[in-house]
Design a protein around this nucleic acid. Structure first.
Lengths: 242, 242
DNA sequence: CGAGCTTTTGATCCGAGTCAATCTTCGTGG
DNA sequence: CCACGAAGATTGACTCGGATCAAAAGCTCG
């Protein structure tokens, strides 16, 4: 159990150094670990969850689906992320959450989280902070889809993934595991699957990236970041100097 | 001063009934009220604000700007909203905030807000909750821009504004003050200004809405909501049954 | 080997962007 | 009271990024 929390503690510690008391409080959270196959719903739109989850292994995505079945991916979650922390306070969830790959997920009851937050307000602040970073990423995605063309959008997504996986200790900054299909990338960037394929060909042939089924490699970080106008500030990886 | 807080208290009370102690705590916040003309920056991208603001009158927008000057509006704020609550925990702001119309804004120092949150954790929860609703709106905007066409996007924006102004006591649900230019609407929906104009003509000629410089009137709510696939759940106006 | 994904390609079409000019409004100063 | 300028709304012509449709080609795994 304590092992499961390591990634999450590291995630929180990126915001601020944790005190021993806080670490003990986190360790007291009752976790239930579950393994899911790829493309499995974790939370369905319209439900009222009574627990939040923590991604331990794999990739997950929150999304919204239209009546005619088209899907928009709203955010990607990697190990150490708590993609549905917002369900702690919002009643009905307005977006679904599903695995993209085989994943290991730890669940913690809302009641237990609330207890910890009540006893350790500073942990509440950290969790709040976490949800604010999520919101910041949502804002960037609005701008990404709203004002960049397809190539820049995809480049931006790759930059974000590389920076986040590096911060999470999952990559060296130039290559990381990223086993998403082109259809899923299309759903995340708001382009059609066919155009996603052509955009990938462009990014590959111009030597920016290569993306095999399993691994993303950025060959030309500067070029990719320039193409995307990527500025990692919105990820708020530097602890704020309060 | 106490008067300035009324709208904000009502905004919070939509989440949960406030106790007398909480209301007193809010009233203790030192507010500085400022009036701004239209198109005036409140917070600039890259700054590190030491205070948060509360919109008392008028309309504001948070936005991101590209190097070549194109702007994406990320959210609209109306009276009673705290559009930059996130600056309380995030250091550098990743998005700017500016008035769209003449506005009255109340500022409160982060330090004072932190004090209140420390003494009244339940107010911290309410503010957290507020930022979660903001994030929910961001998510819907991603989906709005990512998977709807121009007509549906604009229709969706109008539906959102009408529901929110109604909830804030600023409209009866069919007409409200909404003095945005077509350029600003274009920036909020990710379409060009010219296409925005043509989209407005469509929505006007099909009898869905009319939008004079000052006022938005929705003539056919059902038609507009259908066109937009509008579902107000993401605004989380119903208090959650915890 | 064959079924079912995923990727790729080619052809065609359309929503929306861009450019450039005109028209309206409206506030301001002569 | 009107001329003038600036901002916003509107129009028309043209272009283009990206969607759609349909089919083919690779992969992967039972």
């Amino acid at each position: 159990m304590a092992d499961d929390l390591l990634r999450f503690e590291r995630r929180l510690a990126r915001l601020r150094k944790l005190t021993p008391g806080e670490r003990a409080a986190l360790a007291s959270l009752p976790l239930v670990t579950v393994e899911f196959p790829a493309n499995h719903d974790i939370v369905r739109q319209g439900e009222r969850p009574t627990q939040s989850c923590l991604i331990l292994e794999g990739f997950a995505a929150s999304h919204k689906v239209t009546l005619d079945g088209r899907r928009q991916i709203l955010s990607l979650s990697i190990s150490g992320d708590m993609p549905d922390l917002q369900t702690l306070y919002l009643g009905v969830v307005d977006s679904g959450l599903a695995t993209l790959t085989r994943s290991v997920v730890a669940f913690m009851p809302h009641a237990a989280v609330r207890d910890v937050v009540r006893l350790f307000p500073s942990i509440g602040d950290l969790l709040w902070h976490l949800t604010l970073v999520d919101a910041s990423v949502f804002r960037e995605w609005i701008a990404n889809i709203g004002l960049r063309d397809a190539r820049a959008r995809v480049a931006h997504l790759f930059c974000e993934i590389m920076v986040r996986t590096k911060a999470a200790g999952l990559s060296d900054g130039s290559r990381c595991r990223f086993p998403l299909t082109q259809v899923e990338l299309a759903e995340a960037t708001g382009v059609s699957a066919v155009h996603m394929n052509r955009t990938m060909q462009f990014l590959r042939q111009t030597g920016h990236v290569s993306l095999t089924g399993e691994e993303l490699v950025i060959h030309d970080w500067h070029g990719l970041a320039t193409l995307a106008s990527f500025d990692p500030a919105y990820l708020h990886l530097e602890p704020p100097s309060t």
